[in-house]
């Protein structure tokens, strides 16, 4: 039982990081219809900038406590990423708004490579260890289920950020303008919405969230690296599509579902496909021999962890072609 609970906790922690990153994908997609492939690398920049600031503060102001150090680092990282998001939108995407659909996809991949290469020049090729500012001694809310303070902070702050974002989009003037731009860019601009500004703002907000996710990621796992953005970026993109791309709630649901599926799948797929669980009449002689003394014959195991995301995605999309929470669109969309 505590194993299952632990797997759920693991899944929630991973899932909420995916969800934060997925929000960035989904916001940009909702407004521009563009897959911002460079989003994962913005996360990487956020983590590495924060690392740099933390190292600097620890050297220059060693008396500053752990929490202020982390907060300052986070703020700087967010600021840098917001600027970066704006620059990316301005230089790489704005000119292509009416170009063939795949052109911005290629520039996005180009931007992603560029950010990685620049990060490699600045921070080198090594994996950097991210200082542990918050204690890593795990807590046990339930006997046998472990959770570290960092993980609690991740869960709480991503929930807060997501709620904040939903309020922003649904309740404020800016949010209304964003929704209008997403609905129809031209009509929105006829109604007096400065769509260029709104699109830039979307990128800025998404990048800030990516920075937060990057700092969370690095402080949880204790590493930062110039290529670290790729895997979370890919998973988050999958999560965004799973939930219904363009839909904020969908991104969150997608992220959490994906996190849970991965951790529970990796934990239980092995024993679920263990042929030793077959009734004995269905087992061959050699199988019985393997299974004797508590042996096992697992057809699939945690080596397939990385495909659960895609298999679930495939199945969901077959039945709901626009994702879990996606709106039904006519063929004419």
């Amino acid at each position: 039982m505590e194993t299952l609970l632990q797997q759920i906790v693991n899944g929630l922690v991973v899932g909420s990081v995916y969800a934060l990153v997925a929000l960035g994908y989904t916001m940009v997609y909702g407004i521009l219809g563009l897959i911002n492939f460079a989003h994962g690398d913005v996360l990487m920049v956020g983590a590495l900038v924060a690392l740099q600031v933390v190292l600097f503060l620890q050297k220059a102001f060693p008396l500053l406590g752990a929490v202020p150090t982390l907060l300052i680092a986070l703020t700087v990282a967010m600021a840098v990423c917001m600027a970066l998001g704006y620059i990316i939108e301005r230089t790489a995407y704005r000119r292509l708004r009416n170009a063939p659909r795949l052109a911005p996809l290629i520039t996005a991949i180009g931007v992603s490579f560029l950010l990685q290469t620049l990060a490699m020049i600045i921070w080198g090729r090594n994996y950097h260890s991210f200082p542990q500012l918050i204690t890593t001694t795990p807590l046990q809310p339930v006997e046998g289920v472990f959770i570290t303070p960092v993980q609690i902070i991740i869960l709480v702050s991503s929930a807060l950020l997501m709620t904040g974002l939903i309020l922003l989009v649904n309740k404020t003037r800016l949010g209304r303008a964003m929704r209008a731009t997403a609905e129809n860019h031209r009509v929105a601009s006829l109604m007096g919405v400065d769509t260029n500004k709104i699109i830039a703002t979307t990128f800025i907000i998404g990048s800030a969230l990516a920075a937060v996710a990057g700092v969370m990621f690095s402080s949880n796992y204790g590493v930062a690296h110039y290529a670290m953005g790729f895997t979370p970026g890919l998973k988050a993109f999958t999560a965004a599509v799973l939930g219904g791309i363009g839909n904020l709630g969908g991104a969150m649901v997608g992220g959490v579902v994906l996190g849970l599926v991965e951790s529970i799948g990796a934990g239980y797929l092995g024993s679920a496909t263990d042929l030793c669980h077959l009734p004995s009449w269905a087992q061959s002689a050699s199988l019985i021999e393997t299974c004797a003394n508590g042996g096992s014959f697992e057809l699939l195991s945690s080596n397939y962890q990385d495909i659960f995301a895609f298999v679930i995605l495939g199945i969901v999309l077959i039945f709901r072609p626009t994702g879990l929470l996606g709106e039904r669109v006519s063929d004419r969309a």
Binding site: N10, V14, A227, G265, A266
Partner: peptide, 22 residues
């Protein structure tokens, strides 16, 4: 007791470690 697997780009091993822990 078991053979578990990850990949050379992974950073999260909680799921397989939880399984191993049991």
């Amino acid at each position: 007791t078991s053979r578990e697997f990850t990949n050379n780009q992974a950073t999260d091993f909680m799921a397989i470690l939880t399984k191993i822990k049991a």
